[in-house]
Design a binder for these strands. Structure first.
Length: 718
DNA sequence: CTGGAGGATCTTTTT
DNA sequence: GATCCTCCAG
C-alpha cells in the first residue's frame, strides 16, 4: 500500500495512479464526473517532467478553455516548484495559431493574419449574399455560416465538400474563403483546417512536429471534432504517447461539431491503447451521485461507467421544486440562498445553472433586490461587447490598413457623415477593381468627383495615416489612447446619456490597461480574439450564475438547476433537428448539471415563464421523472409533496379567453390549465393574482363580479 | 445622401 | 427587449 514515492503520487487511488504512470503508448482515461480528472492530468504532466521523460517544450497539452490551461499551468508550476515555460499548453485553437504563425506562407497567409469572430463572419457572408443578389431572408446568413462551420469541423475544405443538398452553401463557402484570403484573415474553423492543409502539403513540417512532441495530452476528449481528431492523430504518430481524458457522458458540444464517436472508437483509432476507468467519485454525496447516475442511465450508447462513492453520510436527497412562474422560481432560489448563507454556507460555493443565457436575467433582478452579490459567468465575452469591438477595429485598421471588415465597422462610428450609400459605392468599386475595401475607399476619397462623403472620408484617412506614423515614435498604448480620443470615439460615449455608457467607457479603459501588457498591438489583437475574458471581477465571495455549458469542469457545494421544463430543457430547438441523439445530449447536460454539486442539488421548474414576447406555459421537464425517487424529494408549486413520480405528464388543452371573448370581461384574461398525473393545475395570468387550487376546485380573486363563478364553472366542465 | 423613427423579427449552448 | 432593417423627412 504505502510504497515509497514522490509526494505528488501520494493519496491517489489505484486507477488514478495507473493513469499517471502509464507513460508509454496511447492511453484513454475514461473519467466520470468528480473522479479527480484534473488532478490526474496535472499530476501526469508533473510525473513526466519529474522523471525527465521529456522537456516542457516536448509536451503538447490541450485543454478545453484557455482558463483551464492557465489553471493547469499554475498548478503544475506549483507542484513542480519551477516554471514550465515552453510547454505547448492551450486550446486546440491557440496551439494551431502558434503553428500557423510560423508557417503562414505555406497556406497563403501573411504571418500577421487576423482571426475573425462570429460577428465578422456573418458580416462577410452578408456581403457575399448581397453581391450575389441572393435574398438573405430565404437563405439566412446564420444558417449558411453554420453549415460552413460544420464542414470545417469535419475537416472539409470547400473543394472536398460534396455539394448537392447544400449547393448554395457550398458556393458561398468557396467565395467566403476567397474573401478571407484577400483580408488575410481566418476564422475559428480555419485554424484547424489550415493546420491540416499545412501538414498535408508540407510533410517535412509535419514530421518536425511529430518528432518534437514526445508526450501529447488532451482533456475533454469527448468534445473534440473530426478536424481536431485528425490533427491529433497526425501529431501523435511521432511518439505514440497520446493520453486522452474524457467522459462520454459529459459530451455536450455535439451542436458545435464535437463527435462523441471519437472517444467511443479510441481503441480502434489507436491500436494497443490502454483504457483506464476512473469511477470513484470524490465530489458528491451518494444521493446526488445516485440522482445523476439515474438520469444518465436513460441514455443508450454509452461506454458505461458505474460511479461509486465512499460517502457514508448520504447527505440530502435532491430537492425538486415546482414554482408558479419564473419570478416565483427566482424568489424561491433567492430565499434558499439566504437560508443557506445564514447557516454558514459560503456564497462562492453556490451556483445557479440554467439552460439558456436569458434565464439569468430573472435571477439578477431578484438578487439585486435581495442584495445577494452574484456574478454572471460567461455571458457576453469582453471582446464581444460593442465598444470593445469598435475600439479593436480601430487598432486593427491601424496595423492592417487593408482590413476591410474593421474599416466597414468604424468608418461611420462615431458619425462622420459617411452613410450607407457611400459604403455601397465603395463596395462596388472594390469589387470592380479587385482591391480591398479600405483601399477602394481611399481611392474613392481621392478621385470621386461628387458625393458629400468625400471630405470626411479624406479626413479619416489623413488621421489614420498620422496615427499610424505615431506608432514609430510613441509607445503603442499612447497611440491607442490618441486614436480613441482623436477619432471622437470616447467622446461619443461620454456624450451618450444612456445608462450603460459609463460602463462602456470603463471597458475601454480596461482594454487600454490590458494593452499595456503587450509589446505590440498585433500580439494583443490575437490575445483578445482568442483568449481574453471578462473575469476581471474582484475575488469576492459571490453566487455564480451561468449556463450548464459554462459549468462544465466546475464544482460547488450547492447547485441550483433552474428551468427544468418542457420547452426549455430539453431545448426544443435541439430536438427538432436531430431527434434522439440531441435528446441524449440534452440529458447529458442535465447530468453535468447535477454532478456539479457536492452537498446539495436543487432542481426547479415553473409553469409560466416570461419568454420571447410574452408568457409561456410549460409542464415539468421529462428529465424530472427520470431522477430516481430514492434520491429525490419532489415538492410541487403548492408546497405539497409529490409522493410518486407521475406516470406521464399530459398537456391539457390551453384555454384562452381572448378567443372566446366573454362579454363580461373588459380586460384580457388568459387561463391555462394542465394536468400532472391525475392532478389538474390551473393558473391565470395577465390579470389578478395567482389562483389557489384545491383538487378540482379553483378559487380565484377577481374584481369583476361574476367572472369568478364563470371561470370556476368552465374549469369544472373541462 | 444621411440619419432618425418606426416596424418586423427572433432569441441555445461557445472555442 | 433588443437588434436589425426599411422607409421617409430634411
Amino acid at each position: 500500500m504505502s510504497e515509497a514515492g514522490p509526494d505528488y503520487l501520494s493519496n491517489l487511488n489505484e486507477a488514478q495512479r495507473a493513469a499517471i504512470e502509464a507513460t508509454e503508448g496511447p492511453v484513454l482515461v475514461l473519467a466520470g464526473a468528480g473522479t479527480g480528472k484534473t488532478r490526474v492530468l496535472t499530476t501526469r504532466l508533473v510525473h513526466i517532467l519529474n522523471q525527465n521523460l521529456a522537456y516542457p517544450s516536448q509536451i503538447l497539452a490541450v485543454t478545453f478553455t484557455n482558463k483551464a490551461a492557465q489553471e493547469m499551468k499554475e498548478r503544475i508550476g506549483h507542484l513542480l516548484g519551477r516554471s514550465i515555460d515552453g510547454m505547448w499548453l492551450g486550446t486546440f485553437h491557440s496551439l494551431c495559431v502558434r503553428i500557423l504563425r510560423s508557417h503562414a506562407e505555406w497556406v497563403g497567409l501573411q504571418p500577421n493574419f487576423t482571426i475573425l469572430d462570429t460577428d465578422d463572419q456573418l458580416r462577410l457572408i452578408k456581403q457575399i449574399l448581397k453581391a450575389e443578389n441572393i435574398d438573405d431572408r430565404q437563405h439566412p446568413p446564420r444558417l449558411i455560416l453554420s453549415i460552413i462551420s460544420r464542414w470545417k469541423d469535419r475537416g472539409l475544405t470547400f473543394e472536398q465538400v460534396k455539394r448537392g443538398e447544400h449547393d448554395l452553401a457550398g458556393k458561398i463557402y468557396e467565395q467566403y474563403q476567397g474573401r478571407l484570403q484577400v483580408l488575410n484573415a481566418v476564422d475559428f474553423g480555419d485554424l484547424l483546417l489550415l493546420c491540416l492543409t499545412l501538414f498535408k502539403q508540407k510533410p517535412d513540417i509535419l514530421s518536425s512536429y511529430q518528432q518534437k512532441f514526445r508526450y501529447l495530452l488532451v482533456d475533454e476528449y469527448q468534445d473534440t471534432n473530426v478536424a481536431q481528431y485528425l490533427w491529433l492523430r497526425l501529431l501523435a504518430q511521432g511518439s505514440d504517447n497520446l493520453c486522452c481524458v474524457g467522459d462520454d457522458d459529459q459530451s455536450i458540444y455535439g451542436w458545435r461539431g464535437a463527435e462523441v464517436g471519437n472517444i467511443l472508437k479510441f481503441e480502434k483509432d489507436f491500436p494497443g491503447a490502454t483504457v483506464i476507468r476512473l469511477e470513484q467519485n470524490y465530489r458528491s454525496t451518494s444521493h446526488i451521485l445516485g440522482a445523476a447516475s439515474g438520469l444518465i442511465a436513460h441514455n443508450q450508447g454509452r461506454l458505461g461507467k458505474t460511479l461509486w462513492t465512499d460517502d457514508k453520510s448520504e447527505g440530502e436527497p435532491v430537492l425538486i421544486r415546482g414554482t408558479w412562474d419564473s419570478m416565483d422560481e427566482a424568489r424561491f432560489i433567492g430565499d434558499e440562498i439566504e437560508t443557506l448563507q445564514r447557516r454558514g454556507e459560503s456564497l462562492g460555493q453556490m451556483a445557479v445553472l440554467v439552460r439558456a443565457g436569458f434565464q439569468t436575467r430573472e435571477f439578477e433582478e431578484r438578487f439585486l433586490k435581495l442584495g445577494i452579490p452574484y456574478r454572471v459567468v460567461g455571458g457576453p465575452r469582453f471582446y464581444e461587447r460593442m465598444e470593445i469591438r469598435d475600439a479593436l477595429a480601430y487598432l486593427r485598421l491601424l496595423v492592417q490598413p487593408d482590413d476591410g471588415l474593421a474599416f466597414e465597422r468604424i468608418i461611420n462610428v462615431p458619425k462622420r457623415g459617411i452613410g450607407n450609400t457611400t459604403v455601397q459605392a465603395i463596395h462596388i468599386l472594390a469589387r470592380e477593381q479587385g482591391i480591398s475595401l479600405s483601399r477602394a475607399a481611399r481611392y474613392y476619397a481621392e478621385t470621386a468627383e461628387k458625393g458629400a462623403a468625400r471630405v470626411p472620408l479624406r479626413k479619416f484617412f489623413l488621421d489614420m495615416d498620422r496615427w499610424r506614423s505615431l506608432l514609430d515614435q510613441e509607445p503603442h498604448v499612447e497611440v491607442a489612447k490618441i486614436v480613441l480620443d482623436e477619432s471622437g470615439y470616447t467622446a461619443m460615449w461620454r456624450e451618450d446619456k444612456s445608462a450603460d455608457a459609463p460602463g462602456r467607457l470603463e471597458n475601454l479603459k480596461e482594454l487600454v490597461r490590458a494593452l499595456q501588457e503587450f509589446e505590440y498591438i498585433q500580439g494583443f489583437l490575437e490575445h483578445v480574439s482568442l483568449v481574453m475574458d471578462n473575469n476581471q471581477q474582484a475575488e469576492r465571495e459571490v453566487v455564480s450564475l451561468m449556463t450548464l455549458h459554462s459549468a462544465k469542469g466546475l464544482e460547488f457545494n450547492v447547485a441550483f438547476l433552474a428551468g427544468w421544463e418542457e420547452g426549455l430543457f430539453p431545448h426544443p430547438r435541439a430536438l427538432q433537428d436531430s431527434g434522439d441523439s440531441a435528446l441524449e445530449e440534452e440529458r447529458r447536460l442535465g447530468y453535468v448539471g447535477i454532478s456539479r454539486a457536492r452537498k446539495k442539488a436543487v432542481v426547479t421548474y415553473c409553469f409560466q415563464r416570461r419568454m420571447h414576447q410574452g408568457w409561456q406555459t410549460a409542464i415539468p421537464s421529462r428529465f424530472i421523472k427520470e431522477i430516481p425517487l430514492a434520491h429525490s424529494v419532489h415538492i410541487n408549486a403548492n408546497g405539497g409533496e409529490v409522493s410518486a413520480a407521475p406516470a406521464s405528464f399530459h398537456r391539457a388543452p390551453v384555454v384562452d379567453f381572448r378567443n372566446s371573448k366573454p362579454s363580461f370581461l373588459d380586460k384580457t384574461i388568459t387561463l391555462h390549465s394542465f394536468q400532472i398525473g391525475d392532478r389538474v393545475f390551473h393558473q391565470k395570468f395577465g390579470y389578478g393574482e395567482v389562483m389557489e387550487l384545491e383538487g378540482d376546485r379553483l378559487d380565484i380573486e377577481f374584481d369583476e363580479a361574476g367572472s369568478k363563478k364563470i371561470i370556476a364553472d368552465f374549469v369544472s366542465k373541462a
